[in-house]
Amino acid sequence: MRDYKKYDTWKIAHELVKEIYTISENFPKSELFGLASQIRRAAVSIPTNIAEGCGRFTDKEFARFLDISIGSTNETEYLLLLSCDLGFTSKDKIADLNATLNLTRQKLIQLRKKLLNNN
């Protein structure tokens, strides 16, 4: 079984989640169970699926959970765009988050390819 905490991809995604929690604290209270909750769940899904995939026994199974994490990076990116368009946060605040999301997605894709090429 793999230790998810040793993966740089997981470490980056974990830090991203903490940043998104901080930013979403400033969303309107009316969004606590709406957009704030949705963006947090999408972001949390990224490192969570890496961790869950590490508990699987085959590279192919692990790669499937990385697929889900990749999808969650896309969802999180869109929700950040929406939060900016709705005026809940600024383009400046999400620029760094988007850079981190892009790095995370890139690393997830590379790891997935490596896993699937081992089979």
Rank of each mutant, 00 (worst) to 15 (best):
R41L: 10
E25T: 09
E25R: 14
G34N: 10
R41I: 03
L86Y: 08
N118I: 04
K113D: 10
I12L: 15
P28A: 00
F62H: 13
G55E: 10
R41E: 08
G55I: 01
L82A: 06
K11V: 08
S24P: 01
D8C: 10
K93Y: 07
L80F: 03
D92N: 13
F33S: 12
I46H: 08
K11D: 11
G71A: 04
L111R: 11
K113G: 02
I20N: 00
F57L: 15
P47H: 02
Y4T: 06
N119Y: 13
R40Y: 01
F27A: 07
A63F: 03
A36H: 08
N49I: 01
S37Y: 06
K114C: 10
D92G: 15
G87S: 02
R56F: 01
K93N: 11
K29N: 11
E75P: 09
D96T: 12
L80A: 00
T100M: 12
Y78W: 09
D67P: 03
R2F: 07
E61A: 08
A36Y: 02
K29G: 05
H14Y: 12
P47W: 03
L101G: 04
I94W: 00
T73A: 03
K29W: 05
D96A: 09
H14C: 10
S69H: 05
I50N: 00
L32F: 13
W10A: 01
G53L: 05
I109K: 14
L82Y: 07
A42T: 04
L32Q: 15
R2Q: 12
E75M: 06
F57S: 15
N119L: 15
E19P: 05
I23L: 15
L82K: 11
F27P: 06
K11Y: 07
L66M: 07
K60W: 02
L79M: 09
K107G: 04
E15V: 09
I46C: 01
F33V: 05
K18Y: 09
L101W: 02
A13W: 03
N102E: 15
K18T: 08
Y4V: 00
G87D: 00
T76V: 04
Y7A: 11
R2S: 09
L115W: 03
K93E: 14
R2E: 09
N98R: 15
S72I: 02
Q106Y: 12
I12M: 11
D85Y: 11
D96L: 09
E61S: 01
G34V: 04
E52G: 05
F65C: 06
N102P: 08
S24T: 06
E61L: 04
G71H: 03
I46K: 00
K93R: 13
Q38S: 11
L66Y: 00
I70K: 12
Q106C: 11
Y21S: 04
I20Y: 03
L101Y: 01
L86F: 08
S72Q: 01
I12P: 08
T22N: 14
S37T: 02
N119I: 15
H14A: 09
G34F: 02
N119G: 13
A13L: 07
E75S: 08
M1K: 13
L82Q: 11
A63T: 02
A42S: 10
E77C: 10
K113C: 07
K114F: 14
L111S: 09
E19V: 02
S90H: 01
N117C: 10
R40H: 03
I23D: 01
Q110D: 14
P28C: 04
G55N: 05
V44E: 12
Q106S: 15
K113Q: 13
D3K: 12
S90E: 04
Y4S: 02
T73H: 05
E15T: 12
